[in-house]
């Protein structure tokens, strides 16, 4: 778990928002994916999509179902509403279930076997089989001609990790300094902490009374 790559991601996101990019990509790693999902949960990003070297098709450019097929689906759901829920997964333990690619391929198979048929498979994006060619595509957000994510800085450094207890985090979220980490004094500032329950926002950590290693602060 190198923080060097995370530092690169931080700078890249700052640069991308300064350049007013709509979509940008970062290398894929579990840390990055979880952190980006955390950012999306906090509303800094509009979308997090796994893709290849080319950006994924925007939703509006993807193939849309025809109105007739939508009508057919609606009729089917009216008669059998339980079809809206996915079918129970069949256990196929022979394939290596730990990798991300296998997970995605399994999900694709499950979708094709869904009781509603191929209608809802339109949001699929091609993911290269080669992991080195995969990228994580992020949708950046802008509001009132201003980027929503403007600054992103590392708290722990590659040479100096900082672990914070929930008490420290409580002080920091109340704008006080603790464990040599400055308080969250800027309006709308967030800090992400990696814990044994995943990557969480500092305030959420305080709520759940868990500590962890501080990753980065975003505002």
């Amino acid at each position: 778990m190198s923080l060097v790559n995370l530092a690169h991601v931080c700078s890249h996101l700052q640069n991308a928002s300064k350049a007013r990019l709509g979509v940008t990509s970062i290398p894929v790693s579990k840390l990055h994916v979880n952190l980006m999902l955390g950012l999306q949960r906090e509303g800094f990003l509009s979308s997090v999509v796994l893709g290849g070297p080319t950006p994924p098709k925007p939703y509006l450019l993807q193939s849309q179902p025809s109105p007739e097929s939508l009508d057919k689906m609606a009729g089917k759901l009216r008669d059998q509403p339980w079809l809206a829920y996915p079918a129970p997964e069949e256990t196929d333990s022979d394939s290596d279930s730990s990798t991300l690619a296998s997970d995605i391929s399994r999900r694709r198979v499950a979708l094709s076997r869904s009781p509603l048929g191929a209608e809802e498979a339109h949001h699929e994006t091609p993911v290269p089989e080669n992991p080195a060619r995969r990228r994580l595509w992020l949708g950046l957000k802008y509001w009132n001609n201003e980027p929503v994510l403007r600054n992103m800085k590392l708290v722990s450094k590659p040479t100096r990790r900082i672990w914070l207890t929930s008490e420290d985090l409580g002080k920091i979220t109340r704008t006080r300094e603790s464990s040599y980490v400055k308080g969250l004094t800027r309006p709308g500032e967030c800090m992400f902490v990696t814990t044994d329950r995943g990557i969480l926002e500092a305030r959420e950590c305080v709520e759940r009374r868990i500590g962890g290693m501080a990753l980065c602060r975003v505002w």
């Binding site: 509303g43 201003e146 929503v148």
Partner: peptide, 14 residues
């Protein structure tokens, strides 16, 4: 050019 909490919340969809 202060950013108001309301504006930030609108921007983040919170």
């Amino acid at each position: 050019n202060q950013k108001l909490p309301d504006e930030i919340a609108r921007g983040r969809g919170k």
